[in-house]
């Protein structure tokens, strides 16, 4: 049993290839999460600003991105950009672009919610102390908003990591793609190949996402007690 598993992982460069796949998965995830935060935070602040025009536009963007499957967006950008507009972006750039478009939308909604859920009297009591508007933001609103925001951000991060295997379909050799290639070859001789390889991938995703979610719970607990 164990031999059959080991034989797969030591065969050729299989383990190294899985590692490279994992690196791609992590690279795409981190870049997308980072950019989503960079764009989502200002978008969310605009949405919470109570202005007339821009929040509506951003709302439309959020709703549009939310109802369309990420895979559709991925195909839309990967195939239509090159064929219709002859813009040739690498699959990597397209994947980060699409995950950012989606992630920034979700992030903006989290930021909006965390800012607007703050009771109005918190701002007011800050102002009553003589704090300027900017000081109220800095010392009263932002610290509380960040605490409210963090669980949602971490949740979104794990969701984005979990969604990256879609790049499989635009031929990026991420962890999942590599795994599938290995199973295809090894599966001819070893009927348990899919169990071992996909089981391994399962454990890798678990090992990445579970600590992240534990960390979130830890922070929540610390800020509550």
């Amino acid at each position: 049993m164990l031999d059959s598993a080991l034989s797969i992982f030591v065969a050729g460069r299989n383990l190294a290839r899985l590692w490279e796949g994992l690196e791609i998965t992590l690279w795409i995830s981190l870049a997308s999460v980072g950019l989503s935060i960079a764009f989502g935070v200002p978008f969310g602040l605009v949405m919470a600003s109570g202005r007339r025009f821009w929040p509506k536009i951003l709302r439309l963007y959020l709703e549009a991105v939310r109802v369309v499957p990420v895979l559709v967006l991925l195909f839309l950008f990967y195939y239509t950009l090159s064929s219709a507009f002859s813009v040739n972006l690498s699959a990597y750039v397209v994947s980060v672009l699409v995950f950012t478009i989606w992630g920034a939308a979700e992030m903006s909604d989290l930021v909006r919610a965390s800012v607007t859920s703050l009771p109005a009297h918190q701002r007011e009591s800050g102002r009553a102390l003589g704090l300027t508007g900017r000081q109220v933001d800095l010392y009263v609103v932002v610290p509380q908003a960040v605490r409210r925001l963090l669980p949602g951000v971490i949740n979104l991060t794990t969701r984005m990591i979990k969604t990256t295997p879609f790049v499989f379909f635009i031929n990026i050799p991420d962890l999942m793609k590599v795994g599938q290639q290995i199973v295809e070859v090894a599966g001819m001789r070893n009927h348990l190949a899919s169990v071992w390889v996909y089981g391994f991938i399962f454990l890798v995703y678990f090992a990445i996402c579970y600590p992240v979610s534990l960390f979130s719970r830890h922070l929540e607990g610390r800020w509550q007690s």
Binding site: H121, E124, S125, R127, A128, G130, Q144, R147, W223
Partner: peptide
């Protein structure tokens, strides 16, 4: 008003301490 508010202290009905 920020200057005036330093001279006029106010306490509200609802506990408005900063929870963080």
């Amino acid at each position: 008003w920020n200057r005036v508010r330093q001279r006029v202290g106010m306490v509200f009905q609802n506990y408005e301490l900063f929870p963080h």
